[in-house]
Amino acid sequence: MRDTGQSEKKLSDSMTFSDHLEELRQRILNSIYSILISIFFSLLIIKPLISFLEIPAGDIHLLQLAPGEFLFVAIKVAGYSGLIVSMPYIFYQIILFISPGLTKQEKSLILPAVFGSGLLFFLGLIFSWWILVPAAINFFISFGADIVEPTWSIERYFDFVLLLMSSTAIAFQLPVLQFILGSLGIITTEKMISNWKVVVISSAILSAVITPSTDPLTMSLLSISIVFLFFVGTGLTYLSENLKSKTLSSSH
């Protein structure tokens, strides 16, 4: 009986270089179309969407300080929303493009990693929305509450919120990266654990770089989250190593 993975590999190899380029072009166009469509529908509900994102601001007055500022904010919010909403379809296009050229063993590694990446991306958005954004805003309000009245530019507010959410979602990709590197044998669980001190220091530096604010509370929360995700990735790598060793022992 022919191996399914090998037959798919041969099917992929039979495609010419121009065929691969054409398929890649089509996948990219499909992804771009999905983003543009999502942006369009986001613009249709942009005012309720902006009102929703203003919830963490509470009683803070958000002002339009320049002509067209709210228009630019609406475009930014629609752009971010369109990209986020279309992410599942983009991941789907990635899977369709790479799956024909993968063996069965490679699919068992890559496809879960792609799905896990999408899941962690949305978990990062949820975590930043429910935890980081409110914590940062409350810190800013309470820090100067007895001196200044909090009246913020609407553009600066949304720049802060959108950048914090997107950077957190990207930081949440760490376990997927560890899983891929560990499954490929580039790094081991033992090596990861031995470098935990380096990870703690690096997480603090990374949090200071990707966090749009300079308050210690937001950076500390993000740094702790990165360390936690590192140990989650270490656990996934450990499970992957055990599964691989059991597979090899059973084959012999």
Results as ranks from 00 to 15, higher is better:
A57Q: 03
Y80A: 12
Y33T: 03
L222Q: 06
P175I: 07
I201N: 00
L65Y: 01
T218N: 14
L164H: 08
I45R: 01
F115H: 08
S142C: 10
I180L: 15
F70W: 01
G118H: 06
T151I: 14
F52I: 11
M165E: 11
I193Y: 14
K191F: 08
V73K: 02
L96T: 05
I201H: 00
D215W: 09
L49M: 13
F91P: 00
L181W: 04
V77G: 09
F172G: 02
S167Y: 07
V198E: 04
F172A: 02
I84P: 00
F139I: 08
S86T: 08
F40T: 13
I60W: 12
I55F: 04
S203M: 03
F172S: 03
I186P: 01
V200F: 15
T211C: 08
N30D: 03
L248S: 08
P100H: 12
L236V: 12
V85C: 13
L44T: 02
Q26C: 04
I35G: 01
L71S: 04
P67T: 01
H61G: 01
T247E: 14
K191V: 14
G185W: 06
A135Y: 02
F158Y: 07
Q64H: 00
Y238L: 15
I226R: 07
P216T: 09
Y33I: 12
I32P: 02
S213K: 05
F139G: 05
I205G: 09
S167K: 14
L132H: 03
S31M: 12
V200G: 00
K191Y: 08
T168M: 13
S86L: 12
S31L: 04
S81A: 15
S128Q: 04
L125H: 07
S207L: 06
N195I: 11
I32G: 03
L184D: 00
I141V: 15
S51Y: 07
I75K: 09
P112G: 09
T168W: 05
W130A: 03
P112W: 14
F40W: 14
I205D: 04
A204G: 15
T237Q: 07
L163K: 10
R27P: 00
E54G: 02
V114L: 15
K47T: 11
Q173Y: 06
